[in-house]
């Protein structure tokens, strides 16, 4: 008999970090597989997380594939399922299906400079790429991470950023002036223009709010990045995660299977329906 693709594996929450507060708070969950039936994943892939009785949500896997002990998910409190996650405690059980979707072609980028541009919770999908790239530091050229949050208290993975600074260039920004803020003040696309990374032999990877992505891509193009040098991930409402339920398609592609990672060149060829 074939595997039942709809039957989730059981995961256990082993750590919860409160990343940001507020109405749309973000928490990061570390999840283990107590039945040692976990799965391997690639950078950029997602998993369908369940709170039994509430339902499922597609969430990007925010930990590096190199980390085997647990998977990490950063979840913004948005609706029924995510609220249930936010009410969860360490030790609670959840369901996981996956991994789903394609991946960032990290192997194709050997020897190139990497520019990561993230905003808000949009850092989560590209975080495993950053982590993996840092772990394989010698494979890549210059690595720069741009990240912006509304305020300094909204910065995700704050402690990890400190470690990151040892091996890559980190450019943090906050939207509005704050006393004692050492980094850039202003929006991410502006910070990007300000620092103007070179497009030569570089790949730009961006994720964040739609409006941020729009201006980041405009600015990247202005800096001379070609469409093929720009990568992003997109999201749509998903129910099955396996290209059957019919709702997440952008043109002929089901994002859950063909996406979520697209180069700007690929994305441009699809209908603007996401």
């Amino acid at each position: 008999m074939t595997d039942n693709i709809y039957l989730p594996k059981i995961g256990r929450i082993v750590g919860i970090d409160e990343e940001t507060q507020g109405a749309r708070a973000i928490k990061t969950f570390k999840v283990e597989f107590p039945n040692s039936d976990g799965f391997e994943h690639n950078c950029g892939q997602c998993a369908m997380l369940s709170m039994f009785g509430k339902g499922e949500s597609m969430i990007s896997i925010a930990s590096s594939p190199l980390v085997k002990e647990y998977k990490q998910f950063s979840i913004m409190k948005m609706g029924r399922v995510t609220s249930a996650f936010h009410a969860a405690r360490v030790g609670d059980f959840i369901g996981i299906r996956g991994p789903y979707g394609n991946q960032f072609p990290l192997d194709d980028w050997k020897g190139r400079d990497l520019v990561f541009i993230g905003g808000g919770v949009g850092l989560a999908p590209i975080w495993p790429v950053i982590q993996t790239a840092v772990a394989r530091r010698e494979d890549f050229g210059k690595i720069t991470v741009f990240y912006g949050a509304r305020t300094s208290s909204n910065i995700m993975y704050e402690a990890d950023f400190e470690k990151l600074k040892a091996s890559v260039e980190v450019q943090l920004s906050v939207d509005a002036p704050e006393e004692g803020w050492p980094g850039y003040t202003g929006f991410v696309p502006a910070n990007l223009m300000d620092k103007a990374p070179s497009p030569d032999n570089a790949i730009a990877i961006t994720c964040g709010p739609p409006i941020m992505i729009k201006f980041v891509i405009q600015n990247l193009q202005a800096l001379g990045f070609a469409d093929e040098q720009i990568y992003t991930t997109i999201e749509n409402k998903m129910k099955c995660g396996i290209g059957k339920c019919g709702r997440c398609n952008v043109g002929k592609d089901y994002v859950c299977v063909k996406g979520p990672v697209y180069s700007w060149a690929e994305l441009k060829s699809l209908p603007q329906e996401y």
């Binding site: 039994f52 009785g53 509430k54 339902g55 129910k239 099955c240 059957k244 019919g246 709702r247």
Partner: peptide
């Protein structure tokens, strides 16, 4: 063939 997937709770107390 489009479909939806939902959890339907049959016993709210026991979950």
């Amino acid at each position: 063939h489009c479909f939806d997937i939902n959890d339907e709770v049959t016993s709210p107390t026991s979950g």
